[in-house]
């Protein structure tokens, strides 16, 4: 009980510090999320046309996904140095898999009869993709993005180990100075951000599902 009171006190008295860290955390995550979304969806669309390329690309992202995050961060420090750039690169590499895979699966699993009807009526490849295939794949793609957003926000907490900002700073400081309240406060706020982002995306997903089922 005493722990929670001092945790509350810490959050209140150091609110400026925590708000600044949260903003840094969101900026770091969102930069990565936007890059992942753009690159991931584009890659997914491109490989959906060729099953061979798809197995290579998805296989490769699968392998990258299995590398432990600390190792990944450490590896990129030796190339791009410490700081936000390295953190974003590592976050992007981790986040790509769910987005590429879900875009690919969503696009390739659209009912072939629906595709044939659209082609038979004279859709150009771009019209087929933009008017039929992509909208129908959207719920699956959004599910992948949701997965990726939560993961990226959580993983950004580790980024301060390599000198990036964000709530990881609070967690790291708490651990090194044996200040438990600080560690817990940082962790709780990371969880809160992930939770809110997941809730918002869940709502979007639900609205989309209503139409396409």
């Amino acid at each position: 009980m005493e722990f929670f009171t001092s945790l509350g006190n810490l959050l209140l008295t150091r609110s400026d510090f925590f708000i600044e860290l949260m903003v840094q955390h969101l900026l770091l995550s969102f930069t990565a999320i936007i890059i992942i979304t753009v690159v991931g969806i584009t890659t997914g669309i491109l490989i959906a046309k060729s099953p061979k390329a798809a197995s290579v690309v998805i296989g490769l992202t699968n392998v990258l996904y299995t590398i432990p995050s600390i190792a990944m961060f450490g590896f990129f420090v030796s190339i791009t140095g410490i700081g936000n750039t390295t953190a974003i690169i590592a976050l992007v590499i981790y986040g790509l898999l769910p987005v590429i895979r879900n875009t690919y699966v969503g696009l390739t699993e659209v009912d072939s009869q629906i595709m044939e009807a659209a082609v038979g009526m004279g859709s150009t490849p771009w019209q087929l993709l933009s008017k039929i295939q992509f909208p129908l794949a959207l719920p699956v793609i959004i599910a992948g993005i949701r997965n990726m957003v939560v993961m990226t926000i959580a993983l950004a907490g580790i980024a301060s180990f390599i000198g990036a900002g964000g709530l990881g700073v609070a967690i790291w400081r708490g651990i090194t100075t044996n200040f438990d309240e600080m560690t817990v406060a940082g962790s709780l706020l990371v969880a809160l951000l992930a939770f809110i982002a997941d809730g918002i995306l869940g709502m979007i997903e639900k609205r989309l599902l209503r139409r396409t089922k």
């Binding site: 009869q113 009807a117 659209a118 038979g120 009526m121 909208p135 139409r211």
Partner: peptide, 20 residues
């Protein structure tokens, strides 16, 4: 090929209506 298809109506067995 695109113009040809637009000049011809096409109906298939499973209808193929666009669910969205």
């Amino acid at each position: 090929p695109i113009v040809l298809k637009r000049n011809i109506g096409y109906v298939i067995q499973q209808v193929g209506l666009f669910p969205h």
